[in-house]
């Protein structure tokens, strides 16, 4: 979705039509390997979500940000903790206190073991000392449905994924895992404010096969930058609850490597935490 909209916005500046191919599978591992194997002429590029920094740690594919030519980053999405509106927990502190009071008493739905929102739950456990009963689902949507239907107590998913339910009053957001408040949910406190500096956002960028000529990268980055600055992109991000956030080639590369190091250092530790 991000790439289709971005492609349609950037097309005009490249004078070539952009063709979107969709390659799902294994947290994106299949798509990353596909793009990395293509000729590095700049005509095949990929959409790089946060998973590009994760899949190696999970063992899905031996590929990471340093194996490709990163072009630019265009958006970021923070996770949010949500509960049912009829639940007794009015605030993040209530919730954590209840979770600490009885280990595993609170059932936490996640969007799948190994997904970015699952890591955020594990980070939450690690950061606060609370322990949950984990209920894995195949994606954020069914995980949120299980909270709405009161089959589980809480879930963590992207701000953009929960915002519509929060606005409709079918979920209550307790905290956003970020340093600054989310634009679409400014009334919800952040974990950093509450004294727990945790949170791993999801992000979206673009990349090409390794060894792409610098001028090609620059050309594509320019086109995406122009597209990024359009009002359509800002509006698209706002509607989907994402934060429009631009990083050029060097900044993106540094950021992605830092993210990869973060996941590499945390994943083994977190997985151990889950299976004692």
């Amino acid at each position: 979705m991000v790439s289709r909209v971005m492609a349609s916005l950037a097309e005009g500046h490249l004078n070539v039509p952009i063709v979107c191919e969709y390659k799902p599978g294994a947290s994106g591992a299949l798509a990353f390997s596909f793009v990395a194997r293509r000729p590095s002429d700049g005509y095949t590029i990929g959409h790089a979500p946060v998973e590009i920094a994760i899949v190696r740690s999970l063992g899905y594919a031996d590929i990471g940000p340093s194996d490709v030519s990163l072009i630019c980053l265009v958006s970021k999405t923070a996770p949010a903790l949500v509960v049912h509106p009829d639940s007794p927990w009015q605030s993040f502190e209530d919730f954590i206190a209840a979770a600490k009071a009885e280990t595993g008493n609170i059932v936490m739905a996640n969007s799948g073991i190994g997904s970015i929102w699952h890591f955020n739950i594990l980070l939450l456990e690690q950061g606060t000392g609370a322990r949950f009963t984990h209920l894995p689902y195949g994606g954020s949507a069914p995980a949120l449905v299980s909270v709405i239907g009161r089959h589980s107590d809480a879930a963590v998913a992207a701000v953009g994924e929960v915002i519509s339910h929060v606005r409709a009053g079918s979920l209550r957001a307790l905290a956003v895992f970020d340093a600054g408040r989310a634009g679409v949910m400014a009334e919800v406190p952040t974990t950093h404010e509450l004294g727990y500096p945790i949170g791993a956002p999801a992000w979206s960028g673009f990349y090409g096969p390794a060894g792409m000529p610098a001028e090609r990268v620059a050309m594509l980055a320019d086109a995406f930058k122009t597209a990024f600055e359009t009002t359509e992109w800002a509006e698209f991000c706002r509607e989907l609850g994402m934060e429009a956030h631009y990083l050029g080639k060097e900044d993106f590369a540094a950021f992605a490597l830092e993210q990869q190091r973060f996941f590499e250092s945390r994943i083994p530790q977190l997985v151990r935490l889950e299976n004692p």
């Binding site: 519509s164 339910h165 606005r167 409709a168 009053g169």
Partner: peptide, 10 residues
């Protein structure tokens, strides 16, 4: 959602 319409009870 992109067109600004929010499905839900509201």
């Amino acid at each position: 959602l992109i067109h600004g319409i929010q499905p839900g009870p509201l």
